[in-house]
Structures are given as structure tokens and as C-alpha cells.
């Protein structure tokens, strides 16, 4: 049968910063082709296609239940593929090769992670599940 794509609405203007992204105006309706865990979703709108931040999108027909996963306080082991320095106070700074626990995977691509007793947001695209190849 036909593939029915989910439609989302832009909640704010978005100006693309790289070639593979797509710009949007608030209120634009886009079809979501692929949702990546990185927080970037591949969308199409009329004759345009590209990646947009999931945080700029909301479902057009109102979510029947939140798409977000529940937190997992036991933590899921991940390895830091790429270091990152916290830019905001609720983020965490980590170095490549460190092992941490992912507590909450969020659609916007910033996951809540724990290292020892410190928790904070970290870009999911810089993390790799323990034991998974790249």
C-alpha cells in the first residue's frame, strides 16, 4: 500500500546552516521521511528536502501519547565517540573514550547522561551504545 508519511508543523522559523539541511517558516507543514536519533529528522516540503531539528517540529494532528521514551534510571552504557564541552549549565562535558550511562533518550537529540554522580545533557550523535559497531 502507499507509504503514509507523518506530517509535522514548524513551531518556529529555522534557517539552515549546512547544505543537507532544510529551512522552514513557522507554520510550515512538512512530511517526515526519517527520524534519526541524532535529533535531526529528514523531511520534505513541496519540492524541498533536507534535515531539520526535531525540536522545531510538532505533530499536526496532536500526539495521542507523547512520543518521548520514559527515563531509564538504571542507565544504558554508552561510549563517548566524540568529546564535547558543555555550552550551557545543564549540559555535561565529556572526553572521547569515556564510558557513561544514558538515563533518558529524547527526540531532540540531547540525551540526559550520568557520569559518576553528575548528570547533564549531551549530544546523542557523539555517543555510541556499548558493544555496537559504528
Amino acid at each position: 500500500g502507499p507509504i503514509i508519511l507523518q506530517t509535522y508543523r514548524a513551531v518556529a522559523d529555522y534557517e539552515k546552516n549546512s547544505k543537507t539541511e532544510m529551512s522552514m517558516k513557522v507554520g510550515d507543514v512538512v512530511d517526515v521521511i526519517e527520524k534519526s536519533e541524532s535529533g535531526w529528522w529528514f523531511c520534505q516540503q513541496k519540492n524541498k528536502r533536507g534535515w531539520v531539528p526535531a525540536v522545531y517540529l510538532e505533530p499536526t494532528d496532536g500526539p495521542d501519547e507523547s512520543e518521548e521514551q520514559e527515563p531509564n534510571y538504571a542507565g544504558e552504557l554508552h561510549v563517548v565517540r566524540k568529546g564535547y564541552t558543555a555550552a550551557q549549565e545543564d549540559e555535561i562535558t565529556l572526553k572521547e573514550g569515556e564510558t557513561i550511562e544514558v538515563i533518558h533518550k529524547l527526540l531532540d537529540g540531547w540525551w540526559v547522561v550520568r557520569k559518576d554522580e553528575i548528570t547533564g545533557y549531551y549530544p546523542s550523535m557523539y555517543l555510541q551504545k556499548m558493544g555496537a559497531e559504528n
Partner: peptide, 22 residues
């Protein structure tokens, strides 16, 4: 064709929209 996502992390949600588990 779906090219690779951007290499930089996406922007953070606005502070008031952030879901932080207790």
C-alpha cells in the same frame, strides 16, 4: 537519496521546553 545528517548537534530546545527527569 537521504544524505547523512549534519555533523553538528541540533540546536537545544528553549529552556522552558526542556524535559528534565527528577
Amino acid at each position: 537519496t537521504i544524505k547523512h545528517p549534519p555533523t553538528e548537534p541540533p540546536p537545544r530546545p528553549p529552556a522552558e521546553a526542556r524535559k528534565r527527569p527528577a
